[in-house]
């Protein structure tokens, strides 16, 4: 049976954990507020980038695919990163020979390396410490445009922030010049050449990555707020349970001591023969 000292130490450490978790919740709530403000700007940016591709009615040639997993370096935020890697696994399973993966953030790398390490094209880390910038996005899209791997379409998989309590793991498609040129919808557009299309493509892919990063950042923070909230509740429950046990043990110890004294005294009385 645990002693009073041991239990009180456990209660103390639980209280410390609860404090840390609560602080983390407050910090992520503040970070979420900022990420949400950023997202208000990034969302029209992302949706208007998509307009052109939606209008083109592009056909995915179903050849080489590139999967881009948008996560971050930080954990402790629920099943968020796990959801992205599950989706990647699903997409990968569709065409295992013709798929490659680009990981953004250490978390997706950690989750996917064991099984798909050989199909990695690149990993972009240092994501998630600070709010994502356009420079981060161009660093990632640089991997997409400089790779020797000849892919025909790409899929960015990220968590789209729906509200404070929910997110949705979504997919945004990106294309390459070859796929774009094959699209019948492109004929409507006037005075195009490959140079212009390539520049246009590079910029719009970067914009889409930027948008995905912003969405992912916002959903990560909101998810962390919820995870920390849950954790501090659990810690609270454990504290009250442990306090109960502590009181019981302490009282039991006192009772035992009292019984010992009383029975000792009774024995002494009997001995004196009064």
């Amino acid at each position: 049976m645990s002693t009073v000292k041991m239990i009180s130490l456990r209660v103390k450490s639980m209280k410390n954990i609860q404090k840390i978790v609560k602080t983390m919740k407050v910090v992520s709530a503040a970070k979420y507020a900022k990420a949400k403000k950023d997202l208000l700007v990034a969302r029209p940016y992302g949706t208007s980038t998509k307009v052109f591709y939606d209008k083109l009615d592009l056909k995915d040639p179903q050849e080489q695919t590139l999967l881009i997993a948008i996560t971050s370096d930080r954990g402790l935020c629920g099943a968020l990163h796990k959801n992205v890697s599950t989706k990647i696994k699903e997409e990968f399973a569709k065409r295992p020979e013709n798929s490659k993966i680009v990981c953004v953030g250490e978390k997706s790398r950690g989750l996917l390396q064991g099984q798909y390490g050989k199909s990695f094209l690149g990993v972009a880390d240092q994501i998630g410490r600070k709010p994502p910038t356009f420079l981060d996005a161009s660093r990632i899209s640089n991997i997409l445009f400089t790779t020797p791997y000849k892919y025909t379409s790409g899929k960015i998989i990220f968590n789209e922030s729906k509200s404070v309590v929910s997110y949705l793991t979504s997919v945004v498609s990106v294309f390459t010049l070859r796929t774009l040129n094959a699209a019948p919808g492109l004929r409507v557009y006037d005075s195009l050449d490959d140079d212009l299309l390539q520049s246009y493509l590079e910029f719009s892919v970067t914009s889409l990555v930027f948008y995905a990063l912003k969405e992912a950042a916002a959903s990560e923070q909101s998810s962390r707020v919820n995870a920390m909230d849950q954790a501090s509740k659990t810690a609270g429950n454990m504290i009250s349970e442990l306090t109960m046990v502590l009181n019981k043990t302490r009282q039991a110890a006192i009772t035992t001591e009292l019984i010992e004294i009383i029975s000792g005294a009774t024995a002494a009385k009997k001995d004196s023969g009064v």
Partner: peptide, 8 residues
Amino acid sequence: KHVPTLAV
């Protein structure tokens, strides 16, 4: 009613 086009 500008003719559809792309530009950088």
